[in-house]
C-alpha cells in the first residue's frame, strides 16, 4: 500500500503539533508569570513568590483554579456564539505558530507564503472578541466588541502596509528566506537596510505600535478597558473560558513579536555575526515581549477617537508614503 506521505513525515508532523502546542502553552505560562513579576518590579513589589520557586508555579495554580470553576453561559445570550468565541480566539493564535521559523530547520511547515498565512490567521483572532461580545448579552461586552472591531480594522491597514513594504524589499513571503537574507551582523537586518529604504527604523516603530493595538495591549486596550467596560468582551466568561482568552492574548503577543524579529531584527542571526541560533531569536523575542509589558504598566489608556486619529491620520499616510518611497528607492538605487 502506498501512503500519500511517509511514516516519518507523519511522526515529524505529529511531534511538531505537540511541540508547538506545548511551546505556545508553556510560553503563556511563562509570560503570565513574567508579566506579573515584571509588573511587580515596575511597581516596587515582589510579585508571586509563594507557589513554587520564585512563584513559578503560580500560573499552573491559577489554571487549576480556573479549571475547577464552573463555566457558565449567560441566560438569554447566544450560547453557540458564546461557546465558539474562546476557540475562535485561541485556534488562529496557535495556528500562526506553524509558519514561524525559530531557527534553521526549527519550524513546522516551510510555507512559501508563510507571511500571508500568519496574517490571515491573526486577522481571525478578532472574531473571537466580536463573537464573544455578541454572544454574552451584556451591554459592556457589545460596546467592547464594537470597539475591538473598529480598532482592528484601523490598525490592520498600517500594519499590513508596513509588512508589504518589507515584502517589497525582500521579494518573498517565505519567512525562512526573509531571515536568510538578513544573515550577518546587525547592519544586515531589515531594520537597518538603508540601501532599500531610508525609513525602515520608522517602519519598525509603526509596526510595534500597530502590534500593540492588534493585541489589545495598553495604551490601546480600549476593547477590554477594565475601568470602563469591566473586562469588555470577556466580562461574562468564567473559568477556563476567560483563561483561554488570556492564553490567546499571550500567544498573539508572541506571534506579533516573533514577526517583528523575523521581519526587522534578523531572526536567529546575532548582532555581530558569531553564533546564530535559536537563542538569539529567543533573546530578541523576549526583549520585545518585555517591552510590550513595560509599556503596559507605564502608560495610561488612550481615548478611542485619538486612537483612530492616530491610525487614519498619521500611520496610514506615513506607511503609504513610505511604501511609495521604498518603491522609488529600490527602482533608483536597487540592483
Amino acid at each position: 500500500m502506498q501512503l500519500p506521505f511517509s511514516i516519518e513525515t507523519f511522526i515529524r508532523f505529529a511531534l511538531y503539533v505537540v511541540g508547538f502546542l506545548a511551546f505556545a502553552i508553556f510560553n503563556a505560562v511563562i509570560l503570565g508569570w513574567g508579566e506579573r513579576k515584571i509588573m511587580a518590579r515596575i511597581q516596587r513589589r515582589i510579585g508571586p513568590k509563594e507557589v513554587g520557586p520564585f512563584g513559578l508555579l503560580q500560573i499552573p495554580a491559577d489554571v487549576i483554579k480556573l479549571l475547577a470553576k464552573q463555566f457558565r453561559t449567560p441566560k438569554g445570550g447566544d450560547t453557540m456564539l458564546f461557546l465558539a468565541a474562546p476557540a475562535l480566539a485561541i485556534i488562529p493564535a496557535l495556528m500562526s505558530f506553524v509558519a514561524i521559523p525559530f531557527a534553521p530547520g526549527l519550524l513546522a511547515r516551510d510555507i512559501n507564503i508563510g507571511l500571508l498565512m500568519v496574517y490571515a490567521f491573526t486577522t481571525v483572532v478578532i472574531l473571537g472578541l466580536l463573537v464573544g461580545g455578541l454572544g454574552s448579552r451584556n451591554k459592556y461586552a457589545i460596546i467592547s466588541a464594537a470597539r475591538a472591531v473598529s480598532q482592528n480594522v484601523a490598525y490592520e491597514i498600517p500594519m499590513l502596509i508596513s509588512v508589504v513594504t518589507v515584502v517589497l524589499i525582500t521579494r518573498t513571503m517565505n519567512l525562512t528566506t526573509i531571515v536568510d537574507q538578513q544573515a550577518g551582523a546587525f547592519w544586515h537586518w531589515n531594520m537597518f537596510r538603508f540601501s532599500a529604504s531610508p525609513l525602515l527604523p520608522v517602519l519598525f516603530i509603526v509596526y510595534i505600535i500597530c502590534m500593540l493595538a492588534e493585541t489589545n495591549r495598553t495604551p490601546f486596550d480600549i476593547a477590554e478597558a477594565e475601568s470602563e467596560l469591566i473586562a469588555g468582551a470577556f466580562t461574562e466568561y468564567s473559568g477556563m473560558g476567560s483563561g483561554l482568552f488570556f492564553l490567546a492574548e499571550y500567544a498573539n503577543i508572541v506571534v506579533g513579536c516573533s514577526l517583528a524579529v523575523i521581519l526587522f531584527l534578523g531572526g536567529w542571526h546575532d548582532p555581530f555575526g558569531f553564533f546564530p541560533g535559536v537563542w538569539w531569536f529567543a533573546a530578541k523575542l523576549y526583549f520585545l515581549v518585555f517591552f510590550v509589558i513595560w509599556v503596559r504598566w507605564t502608560f495610561p489608556r488612550t481615548q478611542f477617537y485619538s486612537l483612530l486619529n492616530l491610525s487614519w491620520k498619521t500611520l496610514i499616510p506615513l506607511t503609504l508614503g513610505n511604501l511609495l518611497l521604498t518603491g522609488f528607492w529600490i527602482k533608483v538605487f536597487g540592483p
Binding site: 515596575i42 511597581q43 516596587r44 513589589r45 495598553t218 495604551p219 486596550d221 478597558a225 477594565e226 475601568s227 504598566w297 507605564t298 502608560f299 495610561p300 489608556r301
Partner: peptide, 16 residues
C-alpha cells in the same frame, strides 16, 4: 484617577 485612565502603576507608588 490614573487607574480610571488605565494606568495602574502610580496607584502603588502613592500607596507607598
Amino acid at each position: 484617577l490614573i487607574v480610571d485612565l488605565g494606568g495602574f502603576t502610580p496607584m502603588l507608588y502613592i500607596f507607598d
